[in-house]
Simulated assay, not measured.
Amino acid sequence: MPIYDLTDAGALPRQAKSMLDLNPFDLSSAPYIEAIGRHELYALLVQGLTRKQAELAHSQLTQYSDYAGTVAVRLDDETHWLLYGATLLHGYRLVGNQLRVLHDATEVAGDDERDLESFDYWRWSGLFDDVAWENIGLKGTMFDGFESAGHGAVLAEAEDLLDDLLEGVSREVMLRVGDLDPGLVEALHAALLALSTARTAEQYAQSGLSCRRFLERLADRLFPATDEKRNGRELGQDKWKNRLWAFAEDALDSSEASDFQFRLDDLGKRIDHWTDASNQAVHRPAITQIGATRLVVGLVSLTYDLVLLVEPPAELPTAGYEPHASTVLRRLLDDNG
């Protein structure tokens, strides 16, 4: 939709400055105002992108001469709400590699008023595995009681709070596993990198393999292998799932939690689920991007709950450093005869 149609000419400089003050990539107020005055400037709102994805899209779009630039939309800003929250039409949603063409309930209440031309265009473009309709119901229509600046502000604040929460979880996981064994960080990095670059089921399976290796190494650090048994379960080197169970049992028992059995059953089910899922991902020929993402997120969530069962040790473990330390020691002994 043309930007100049959405703004009052007298308030344009103030509104443009308000919009561009919030995380611009390369736009500044004066050129933006000039562009609006001389051209039909259109805006496309893309939701659900990470900062890295938005920066990548921006870098690719700069090669086109008719590309004006990118700003980060904040629906708790009055100008952003006017231009993007209250005016732009719903278009598409990308689910995996399926494109969904959005329409609201009013467009099919009588005659079919959906954008059939766009639907056919994308279906025959060959860019997506599938193209389907998605009915968004009353969202964005005159019947939507949440279509307001107030709700936009709540949405923006909730996103910020959630980002802070998840960032805190990721920081804690990285600190804890890095202290346990720097090799765990490398295994997690491999899983995340494979997930971010994968394009085929075989490549997504590589992410699953890294998840399994991470869990095996985590079990080695939390509960080293032993010839003993626990409740009939072997705890040898290849029984890493049983050893994660044993660690959780000991940690919860030492905390004297009143809901010990409930928490153990809950955590144990998740250990079973995500260790089995990591094994299946390696051998399942049709693992999807969504399935691989759920696996990595589940792995991080499980790790967070496991490592927070105990306080960080006063003396950091050395097991992860021992192979390299042994090599260095042998070299020093050889050099000294």
Rank of each mutant, 00 (worst) to 15 (best):
N242M: 04
R171E: 11
E113Q: 14
L306E: 03
G69V: 00
G91N: 11
E311N: 03
E134F: 13
L138D: 05
D129G: 13
L41I: 05
R212M: 01
D334F: 12
L56T: 08
R74C: 11
R199W: 13
V177L: 08
L192N: 06
G137I: 14
L267G: 02
P2I: 06
N23W: 08
Q206W: 06
F247A: 13
E134V: 03
Q15P: 04
R14I: 11
T50Q: 11
A281M: 06
H90Q: 11
T293S: 07
D115M: 01
L138V: 05
Q203F: 02
D104M: 00
L175F: 15
A286G: 09
E216Y: 10
A9E: 15
D77V: 02
Q15C: 14
A54E: 15
D130R: 08
R93E: 03
E147Q: 09
E107I: 09
V71P: 00
L56H: 06
K52C: 10
A153E: 03
R263N: 06
F260H: 04
W240C: 14
D259Y: 14
A153K: 03
R38F: 04
G145D: 08
S29W: 07
A156C: 06
V108I: 15
L180V: 08
S301P: 05
G145C: 10
N336D: 11
L61P: 00
R213A: 13
E55G: 06
D220T: 11
L99S: 01
L22E: 12
W133T: 09
A198T: 06
Y84T: 08
A11P: 12
A277G: 05
G140V: 00
L102Y: 02
R221I: 09
P312Y: 07
H90D: 07
A109R: 09
P13D: 11
N23Q: 09
R114L: 00
D272A: 14
F262N: 14
S210E: 10
T200K: 08
W81K: 15
V300A: 12
L188I: 04
Y121D: 02
L6N: 05
T106W: 12
D77H: 13
G268P: 01
R221L: 14
L209G: 02
V300M: 15
R38Y: 12
F143R: 11
S255R: 09
Q53E: 05
I287H: 10
L209S: 15
A16I: 00
L88T: 09
V131W: 04
A281K: 09
T70D: 02
S125L: 05
R263D: 14
Y42V: 11
N135L: 12
A191T: 01
D266Y: 11
A35L: 03
D66K: 15
P182N: 07
M142R: 14
R93M: 03
D259T: 04
I3W: 02
E311Q: 08
L45H: 12
L306W: 00
D259R: 07
D181F: 00
A16H: 01
L83M: 02
L99R: 00
L235E: 05
E249Y: 12
V46T: 07
G91R: 14
Q60D: 07
L333T: 05
L332R: 11
W122V: 01
A16E: 00
A201Y: 10
Y67R: 08
E34L: 10
F214Y: 12
A248H: 02
H273W: 04
